[in-house]
Simulated scan of single mutants.
Amino acid sequence: MRLLLLWIVIEVACNVEHRQFSFYTKTSTLVNRCSGTSLIASVETVNILDCASICFHEFHCRRFSYCSADSSCKLFRDGTDCVTAGNGNTCSCYRKNIGRKPSMVTCPLGYHGESCQHIIKDCTEGFDRGWNISDVSKALVYIQPTASLEPFEVFCDLKHVSGTIILERNNNCSDENFNRSRTEYEKGFGEVSKNQWIGFNKLLAMIENRPGFNFTIQIALKDEDGNSCNNFYRGLKLENSSNGYSISFVSNDTNSCGDSFVDGRPFSTYDADYTDYQCATRFGGGWWFANQPNCTKGFLTGSMKGSTTDNFWYGSFDNRVLRRATMWLIGSII
């Protein structure tokens, strides 16, 4: 999390007896073509304190940005950092760590308790808390699996028991380099809900959270004409680093997109290639490549620029340009 060492406490219309206040942390303003978060309102204000005051009074506001160039104040229901498509030098971003009013507490999504002292361990817990019927059915949420030392932010689909994005490719957002080392694929990279890979360390921690669950990988694709499809790979088994993060499934439903996933293969990167054909180097990204000359029938960590190393998926999407590709981790009780 890219947090600057600047803390402010905004006590707006403060009633000392009832302790009404908001506590904010200054975060980062990033340049990207898409925001990927939920805007509540955009208003014009005099200064940053007025913007903070508006966020304080709006119960669902958990983050705000203020841009001095045009005096714009934007309120968001989730997320940590703010995004601008242009020059962000005149903009500041703040996350609400806690907002307290009589009988009401606002926490960053994922945190809960009278002082926001607790955190959910995965999206399933958010579903169990009934967040799927509130204003946050799809949102950026903080989680901390049991095996994780620190919380991290994920995109949850709380309409499912445990819907979490593990890979996002979106051509509408700014580019992200996916030709990364094994270490980088272990840690994760990119911007959540834009172009990102969650990282094997976090993915395994989420799976280990629920030993009694059956996990499914959902692959959702969309082409340049707006056509879409969804594949489901059920009974996920993901090995650890000693076994190269090999992936396998019990069954699949691939009638929608066509089956282009190589089952039972380890994950190759340019510096840790499990093939005899330098597949990761040739294709320009890490993937579960087959040990054969053509390497794979599906590839979602390439470029999205119309090059020879673009993402592709053979089957119903043959010869189509992929504009968006998403991999979800979905859990259900066995």
Rank of each mutant, 00 (worst) to 15 (best):
T45H: 04
N172H: 13
D135N: 09
Q278P: 04
F299C: 06
L236S: 02
V43R: 08
I54V: 07
L322I: 14
N252H: 14
V192D: 03
D135I: 03
N214F: 07
N319P: 02
S303I: 14
A280H: 03
S71G: 05
C93T: 13
Y24R: 10
F289E: 00
R265G: 01
N195E: 06
T296P: 04
S242L: 15
D50S: 07
R62A: 09
G110F: 09
T90N: 04
E168K: 00
E239L: 15
I330L: 06
N87C: 07
P266K: 03
S246K: 05
T37K: 02
I217H: 02
G298F: 12
G130W: 14
S193V: 12
T269C: 04
C116P: 03
T296F: 03
I198K: 01
M1F: 10
Y24V: 15
V141S: 01
I247S: 00
R2Y: 10
C295H: 11
V9W: 06
F21G: 10
K297V: 14
S181H: 02
L39V: 14
V105A: 05
R33F: 09
T275S: 00
R265P: 00
T90Y: 08
Y185M: 13
M1L: 02
T84P: 01
R100M: 08
D225Y: 09
R320Q: 08
H18N: 12
R62E: 02
F189E: 01
N172Q: 14
R63G: 06
M304I: 04
P151E: 00
N87S: 09
N172K: 13
A220M: 13
V16H: 10
F215L: 08
G264N: 09
G285S: 12
L5V: 13
S134W: 03
K96P: 04
K159W: 11
F21V: 15
F23G: 08
S148E: 01
N252C: 07
H118L: 06
G264A: 06
V262A: 02
Q144L: 08
